[in-house]
Design a protein around this nucleic acid. Structure first.
Lengths: 155, 155
DNA sequence: CTAATTTAGTTCGAATATCAAACTAAATAT
DNA sequence: ATATTTAGTTTGATATTCGAACTAAATTAG
């Protein structure tokens, strides 16, 4: 094996290990960032839920459960906690009284923005030192990954 | 805002959303790949454990617990299941009788290699269409990310 | 226009997962 | 030899999740 292809193998292996490690770590540092913030009563999972509800404002409970791939029962349990803690609102639907629409309280939106800011910082660091063309290329790799995920999911 | 910087913002936003989504999805497709394979009695978490034990052969229970950031009690519980299912071996240490070294059975190694092959495929698809320089660049972005993670973890 | 059916969300019971503290046995230090 | 430390297991408490049964509301069929 020549030293050139050896380099490439190293890059491959590094990326492989990285893809496995990084996501675990991101969950972990999100948790520790929250512990350091003013929102101490919240777990990483709960932030994930607040993020999803913030992103999909006024969706129904069933829609959010589907997006998060949680059972309705599990979502109900999580909503009770997040409502009690004051991050999420259940909004009765006037047209259809079976439906509950979900939204964030102002405290929930504060958490949403804090979490979003942290993620923006993460992406900035991910892309540190790259020019626009290079960033576009990295984006393309993420597109590849999502395509692969979609393919496998569809099987 | 000109169209150039708008493009870049789009790339940023896409990468941001992607980084959040992809982890969840990878866990999910790993689970569904396992269900389709001959190793149907295994969860994604358990594969993760088998992967770690395979990667760090003959490490002690405490070392593996530390690597996985699990309590020793939790690891013991998981080891019991994986030993019962025939993927993992506890190996008594001859020098120090308190220590248990962990290893994979041949069935465990089969699972390890199947899982590894799936990850290699994932990385191939991630890097599809890029030349060596571009792959090196993408690797550098992963290095950036790990550096950021290490920094935040150390705080 | 009722009846039956479907739909949205909650409740409940069972199964798992996790942690931290107490515990056991072995090794090391005093 | 005795006390302390270390490695791993056990135990009890708490969390999470699921799916099935349930309630209430909306829709459909007769």
């Amino acid at each position: 094996m020549n030293s050139q292809s050896n380099e490439i193998k190293k890059d491959y292996d590094f990326i492989n290990e990285s893809l496995i490690n990084v996501y675990d770590s991101i969950m972990r540092i999100e948790e520790s960032e929250i512990r350091r913030s003013r929102f101490k009563d919240i777990t990483a999972k709960e932030v994930h839920l607040v993020h999803t509800i913030g992103l999909h404002d006024r969706k129904t409970t069933s829609q959010v459960a589907h997006i998060l791939k949680l059972s309705k029962g599990t979502l109900t349990a999580n909503l009770n906690t997040l409502e009690r803690k004051g991050y999420v609102m259940r909004i009765a639907n006037q047209e259809d009284h079976r439906i509950i629409n979900l939204g964030l309280t102002s405290k929930g939106r504060l958490l949403y923005r804090a979490h979003d800011a942290f993620h923006k910082l993460l992406v900035q660091r991910f892309l540190k030192g790259f020019d626009n063309d290079e960033i576009h290329l990295i984006k393309q790799a993420m597109v590849n990954l999502e395509e692969f995920i979609d393919e496998v999911s569809a099987k």
